[in-house]
């Protein structure tokens, strides 16, 4: 048996896997922001039980590791719907729940960071609650929310690596597969880390630029 060294073929495979990482991040972000937005609104709703339930949800998601959530979905749900569920479904659902729990809390903070006078002014203009949200509060909250949201995208991209534990072939899992065949762990995982860095660093830098240009803190 011959073991070959790390070659361009392996690199190509890693690049394909990186596309799955990006795809899975996109699924998690779309699902997570839809769900997270609803939960953020529930968190500041006037209904007490709604506030309580959304707060419980956030506590649950933020207080348990994503890894355990993924195992729970992958092995646990399979008990109900058949022998196994496709790993992309479990991974997509797990990361969506994870992203929604954190985004909800980030966005709640951003909505509440809109100055109190804006809420009061909207009320004085006899806007309904929904009108006040849509026309006055949310456009301003969006501005505040952009930098931390882009920052959180980096967390999501990094955490898609955990989907590898349930057999989803993304960047980290592709690295493991290559390592199993050529056994050069150090080279392989450094290359894998470099690709993650190539995806995440521009996002981090962008988040910092946004923070400066939108200049939220000094208003």
């Amino acid at each position: 048996m011959t073991t070959s060294a790390f070659s361009i073929v392996h690199f190509e495979f890693l690049c394909w896997a990186a596309l799955w990482t990006i795809g899975l991040s996109a699924i998690a972000l779309v699902g997570g922001s839809l769900l997270g937005f609803v939960i953020a609104l529930a968190r500041i709703s006037s209904n007490k039980s709604l506030r309580w339930a959304s707060s419980l949800y956030i506590q649950l998601v933020q207080g348990t590791p994503l890894l355990v959530l993924l195992f729970l979905l992958y092995y646990g749900i399979a008990v109900f719907v058949g022998p196994t569920i496709p790993s992309i479904v479990a991974a997509g659902a797990g990361l969506t729940i994870y992203a929604s729990g954190f985004l909800a809390e980030i966005w709640r903070g951003c909505i509440e960071a809109v100055p109190k006078s804006q809420w009061e002014a909207a009320e004085c203009l006899a806007l309904r609650r929904s009108q006040r949200m849509v026309h006055v509060i949310l456009p301003q909250a969006l501005r505040i929310a952009t930098p931390p949201t882009v920052g959180f995208v980096v967390q999501v991209v990094k955490n898609t690596s955990l989907a590898s534990v349930i057999g989803f072939i993304e960047l980290a899992q592709a690295g493991k597969l290559i390592n199993n065949s050529i056994f050069e762990p150090f080279t392989v995982f450094v290359v894998v880390a470099a690709i993650y860095f190539g995806i995440c660093f521009p996002l981090s830098a962008w988040s910092r630029t946004l923070e400066r240009t939108l200049n939220v803190a000094d208003r």
């Binding site: 980096v154 990094k158 690596s161 980290a172 880390a193 993650y196 860095f197």
Partner: peptide, 9 residues
């Protein structure tokens, strides 16, 4: 480098 790569890796 640390903040932009996954903990798993």
């Amino acid at each position: 480098v640390i903040r932009n790569t996954p903990l798993l890796v």
